[in-house]
């Protein structure tokens, strides 16, 4: 029954659905890296912290490096995974 319904479906939605899943994937990666670095490196006593460029290592990695990494991942996703599709319906374009 599902197959029958999908046959007439707007083909652009397949692309849209895939991109939504990529968005969710990015958030999951973002969260894991952010959490892992912050509490993985930052939960010990402050006296034993390591420092990178003057900042505590947990902060440097979870807030600065992760932000840069996510930005790069967004760029890569957009360039290699996102597809350009026309947004207008055909009849509207013809008008």
């Amino acid at each position: 029954m599902n197959r029958k319904k999908n046959r007439g479906e707007d083909p652009r939605y397949k692309i849209a659905n895939r991109e939504a899943i990529i968005g969710v994937g990015l958030v999951v990666i973002n969260f894991i890296l952010w959490y892992g670095f912050a509490y993985g490196l930052g939960s010990g006593p402050v006296e034993e912290y390591e420092y990178v460029f003057g900042l505590p290592a947990w902060f440097f990695y979870s807030c600065i490096v992760v932000t840069v990494v996510i930005f790069i991942l967004v760029v890569l996703a957009v360039v290699f995974l996102f597809k350009e599709v026309p947004l207008e319906d055909e009849e509207e374009e013809a008008r």
Binding site: A16, N17, E19, I22, G23, L26, V27, I70, V85
Partner: peptide, 18 residues
């Protein structure tokens, strides 16, 4: 809040626009 930069547009995305 970093997520707001990419999450809203990719999840609502083209489907919402179409």
């Amino acid at each position: 809040q970093l997520a707001t930069g990419y999450f809203v547009l990719s999840v609502l995305g083209k489907k919402f626009a179409i």
